[in-house]
């Protein structure tokens, strides 16, 4: 059976959702900019392991998440700094600090690798959450594909927001022309732009699970959705409030 075959789910899942999920699984298996296909799939597996990790549960309750010793429940397929980063992004993202990200560079986790790691984690997590929301089993992870990483880094970067360099609003040029239009981009769109493919993956999934960049300008109702914009934003707002999302 093909990955993300929703035909038996009995829920009329839109075909574009299944197609986007299948496309992402293929992307996940391929070598990225800073992680191999095997490592990317291992990052995906860690994003699932994190939800049952005993250390993460204890750390979530601790006053400070940075003083607690212990070892994550993990598959030993990734460096320790990467495992810790994956688990924090999934279970305790609100307490990630600039110092943590910068200290990780000294532990072998470059900012570029960190951004790609975040991109993989959030993409897999959102697909898994879609399944959990509908009561569907998680899709088995894809078999990794061989090949070399690209080490691609955009030519135009600036350190003006967040913990990592990002493409500036007027920097979506050359190979980055497709990232956004008009020389303007919200910070959340710029966030993953140090690894442009991570932003492209994010955008493709958001376009089917939520709205495309273009459709976000419609505050009434997208013709391809069963719920109107207020209903969508109520769901978005309640999820964000529980996650204590300031942004």
């Amino acid at each position: 059976m093909a990955a993300f075959d929703y035909s038996d789910a009995g829920l009329q899942i839109r075909p574009d959702i299944g197609a986007a999920h299948r496309n992402y699984w293929q992307t996940l298996a391929r070598p990225g900019s800073w992680w191999t296909g095997s490592e990317r799939v291992a990052i995906a597996q860690e994003s699932r392991n994190a939800l049952d990790c005993a250390l993460c549960r204890r750390r979530r309750q601790a006053l400070s998440p940075y003083g607690m010793a212990g070892e994550h429940d993990h598959d030993r397929a990734l460096p320790e700094a990467a495992v810790d980063a994956v688990h924090r992004v999934v279970t305790d993202q609100g307490r990630i600090t600039r110092r943590y990200v910068e200290d990780n560079v000294g532990r072998g986790l470059s900012k570029e690798a960190y951004v790609e790691l975040v991109g993989v984690v959030v993409a897999v997590f959102s697909i898994d959450e879609f399944h959990r929301a509908l009561g569907l089993p998680l899709e088995p992870l894809p078999a990794p594909l061989p090949g070399a990483i690209s080490r691609y880094r955009p030519a135009h970067l600036r350190e003006d927001i967040g913990f990592v360099p990002t493409v500036p609003p007027d920097g979506a040029v050359g190979p980055e022309t497709d990232l956004w239009k008009g020389g303007r981009a919200a910070n959340v769109i710029r966030a993953l732009s140090l690894v442009p493919d991570a932003l492209r993956d994010w955008r493709a999934l958001a376009a089917v699970q939520y709205l495309s960049f273009e459709a976000m300008a419609n505050y009434v109702k997208d013709a391809d959705r069963a719920i109107d914009r207020m209903q969508m934003e109520l769901v978005a707002g309640r999820v964000s409030a529980i996650n204590e999302c300031f942004y």
Partner: peptide, 21 residues
């Protein structure tokens, strides 16, 4: 289905925003 998509998407957004700061 559409509500599940939106909820799943915003489970991701907070993690992007906070992880990148």
């Amino acid at each position: 289905v559409d509500a599940a998509g939106v909820a799943a998407n915003f489970q991701r957004m907070v993690r992007i925003a906070d992880s990148i700061g």
